[in-house]
Design a protein around this nucleic acid. Structure first.
Lengths: 221, 221
DNA sequence: CCCTTGTGTAAGCACCTGCTTACAAACGTA
DNA sequence: TACGTTTGTAAGCAGGTGCTTACACAAGGG
């Protein structure tokens, strides 16, 4: 997987850029799977099929490698998505789980929380950018707080679903989850559209009625 | 603080129960402050004013100590609080932060997430009980999922406020936060009352209007 | 007094961590 | 071929971890 094609068997071709990239990919995977602390440089180098000394030659330290991993992914989604769709896109990305080239930055953060203060700083930095965009969806003077609360829910859902694997959330249908969350969040961020998946909510009882109540209540836009 | 009173200066009285309790308290504090991994047995023993060998004599292993810490606190709140008030009580407890004898179990979980799979199991176990109660607040067939989503928000808020310290959420007024969250959550858990703090939401814009829309929409009780 | 039992203590063990160093093998060039 | 540079490798270092062991002190009883 993700192995350089011009790699003969037995003999090692010298390809600095290639091994650097393989190290970056392996680090991205392992950070997402185990978090910063539990992903050791030996494991990362092993998965990349490289020696750990190369890791330090190319990146200097484990923390610097973590920084490059976080800087690589994560922010394209943030900039290529319009504000009113950012929440649903991020939520769906998290619900879809670790696909081939999915953005696992949030997952990395979630699993690395306890690691060190610098990791918390990194998550705060990424959170600033998301929350800042989300805050624009409310015209209230508590817009910043509302953006934080929306982001909190996003991360909390990722926490329970991806990290803790709590049922029934862990294997719930992404459409259903997205619908419930986006519907309830309409009360916080009035600029949030109901979106694609926010319409069909499987078979729902009285709760769905309340969500629809917000819709019929009129979207002040 | 929390030191046995019959402890003379200089001379050490032999009090197994006392040191056991001091170890338990120190562990509770340090697990909450740093999470499971970063709280070392040496630090715990030091804070308790005891030798780390005693820690292993009394508890067997670090994981067993963690288990006793988690088992001690945490569940009284769960059982002494009626379902429809559980969310707000837990949220307010988390917003209030680590008071004297506050229940920091959730905080411990949040900071220990990445630690090991057993820690995730512990959090899942605690989450089961909370989500199970919250699920009773919806009569929908997606009640379990709704309970999980509410719990996710609770933990996400704790994550961003206590661990990440993201502003403006970190220093936001608990009443305001509680009001916004409980209001928005009314769309998910129709059995959730607006509660004490869910009424006065400072100066709010159109978002509050939507929340009121749910109220006037009628609570199908 | 000696002896046994329970409590507290220091030193150490085996292992793992991030990181470094000395060296071998593959190139490019002359 | 011979040389220097770049890439890859194995071994090791200093420090920290959970946990153990050997031992010193305080009781209580004969």
């Amino acid at each position: 997987m993700a192995k350089s094609p011009q790699r003969a068997a037995g003999t090692h071709r010298r390809d600095a850029q290639g091994t650097r990239l393989r190290l970056l990919d392996a680090a991205s995977e392992l950070f997402a799977e185990r978090g910063y602390e539990r992903a050791t440089v030996r494991d990362i180098a092993d998965r990349a099929g490289a020696n750990q000394a190369l890791l330090f030659r190319y990146f200097g330290s484990k923390k610097a490698l973590f920084g490059e991993v976080m800087a690589r992914g994560g922010q394209e989604q943030l900039r290529s998505t319009p504000a009113e769709r950012l929440f649903e896109v991020a939520l769906r990305g998290m619900l879809a789980g670790g696909g081939e080239d999915a953005d696992r930055s949030l997952e990395v953060c979630l699993r690395s929380i306890g690691g060190s203060d610098e990791i918390a700083d990194a998550l705060r930095g990424l959170g600033e950018e998301y929350a800042e965009v989300l805050a624009t969806l409310s015209e209230s003077d508590t817009g910043g707080l509302r953006g934080d609360l929306a982001l909190s829910w996003l991360l909390g859902i990722g926490l329970m679903r991806v990290v803790v694997a709590k049922e029934p959330l862990a294997s719930a249908d992404p459409d259903t989850v997205c619908s419930l969350v986006v519907g309830a969040l309409g009360g916080l961020l009035e600029g949030l559209p109901t979106g694609d998946g926010a319409r069909r909510v499987g078979g729902d009882g009285a709760g769905g009625k309340a969500a629809e109540g917000r819709e019929s209540g009129g979207n002040p836009g």
